[in-house]
Design a protein around this nucleic acid. Structure first.
Length: 258
DNA sequence: ATGTCGGAATTATTCCGA
C-alpha cells in the first residue's frame, strides 16, 4: 500500500504532470496541497479515468488540499477548527483502514510579519486536533507541506539557518510536539542521517545547486511505523517531465506492507 | 539579479504569494 504527499503548486497548471506521475508511481492514496482551484474546476473526470476517487477542501485562488485514492474515502474533517481565517489547509478521511490527514501549513512569510505568529498558532491548533482525535494511538498518517525544517540536517544551510523562517525554535518545537504525540517522522525514522530535500526554490537554480529544504513529510503513528517498508522522496518528479514544468516540491512516498 | 513560477485582477501588464 503506497501513500504519498505532494504540494502540487496549482492543480490546473500541474494536471498533465500529475497524471504522468500517477501512472508512473501508482500510489494508493495521495494527499495534495496548494490545489489553487475551486470545486467546479476540479478535474474529477481526469482522475476517475485513472482510477482515483477524490475529496477536497478548497477556496478561491489560494491554498486548498485534497485526497486522491484508489479506495473509498470517508471524510472526517474539512478545515482546522478555529482557523478558518487562515484558509483551506486541512482535510482528514478514513481510507483503507487508516486515518489520513493532509495539511498545508501557513508559510509565515517573515519573522516580523503577522503571519508568523499565526503560523505557530495554527500548528498549535493542529496539535490540539491530533490530540482530540487521538491520532497517535490508532493507525494514522499526518502528511503535507509543513513549511518547517524539523532539524538542521533538513536544510541545505544546516545550522547556519537557525533563526531564519522555517528554522526557528517556535516552528521546530511545534513539529516536535506532534512527534511527542506518537506521530513519527517516517522518513527520518528510516534514514536517520541522510540529508534529503523535498522543496527547492524555483529561483536561482536552487534545485541544481542542491539548495533545498525538507519541509514535506509523512508522520505516522506506531501502528503505521510497524508497517513501513520504504520511505522516499521522489526527486525525479521535481524535474521537468515531457517538457512540463514541475512543482517546486517533490512528492514524498511511504510504502506500507498490507 | 530578489535570477521563477502560478494565479488574481484586469485586459497584456502588474501585483502578490511562495
Amino acid at each position: 500500500m503506497r501513500f504519498a504527499t505532494w504540494n502540487v503548486n496549482g492543480l490546473r497548471a500541474r494536471l498533465d504532470f500529475i497524471k504522468i506521475w500517477l501512472e508512473n508511481r501508482s500510489p494508493d492514496v495521495v494527499g495534495m496541497q496548494e490545489l489553487k482551484v475551486e470545486e467546479p474546476d476540479f478535474p474529477a473526470d481526469e482522475f476517475e479515468a485513472l482510477g482515483y476517487q477524490h475529496a477536497i477542501h478548497v477556496q478561491k485562488g489560494w491554498n486548498g488540499v485534497g485526497i486522491l485514492s484508489k479506495h473509498p474515502i470517508e471524510v472526517t474533517q474539512s478545515g482546522l477548527s478555529g482557523e478558518d481565517e487562515m484558509g483551506a489547509r486541512l482535510i482528514s478521511a478514513d481510507v483503507a483502514g487508516i486515518s489520513f490527514t493532509t495539511v498545508y501549513v501557513p508559510n509565515g512569510k517573515t519573522l516580523d510579519h503577522e503571519d508568523f505568529p499565526a503560523k505557530v498558532k495554527w500548528l498549535g491548533s493542529l496539535a490540539e486536533y491530533c490530540n482530540a482525535t487521538n491520532l497517535g494511538n490508532k493507525p494514522s498518517i499526518l502528511c503535507g507541506d509543513f513549511n518547517v525544517t524539523p532539524d538542521h540536517i533538513d536544510s541545505w544551510k544546516g545550522e547556519r539557518a537557525v533563526g531564519n523562517i522555517f528554522h526557528t525554535e517556535d516552528e521546530r518545537g511545534a513539529i516536535a510536539a506532534l512527534q511527542q504525540q506518537g506521530l513519527t517522522d517516517l522518513f527520518r525514522d528510516k534514514c536517520p542521517a541522510e540529508q534529503k530535500f523535498s522543496w527547492w526554490d524555483y529561483r536561482g537554480g536552487a534545485f541544481h545547486r542542491g539548495q533545498g529544504l525538507r519541509i514535506d513529510y509523512l508522520l505516522g503513528s506506531s501502528a503505521i511505523r510497524e508497517r513501513v517498508d520504504d520511505v522516499w522522496i521522489d526527486r525525479d518528479f521535481r524535474k521537468k517531465q515531457d517538457g512540463l514544468t514541475a512543482s517546486d516540491h517533490a512528492p514524498v512516498i511511504v510504502d506500507l506492507t498490507d
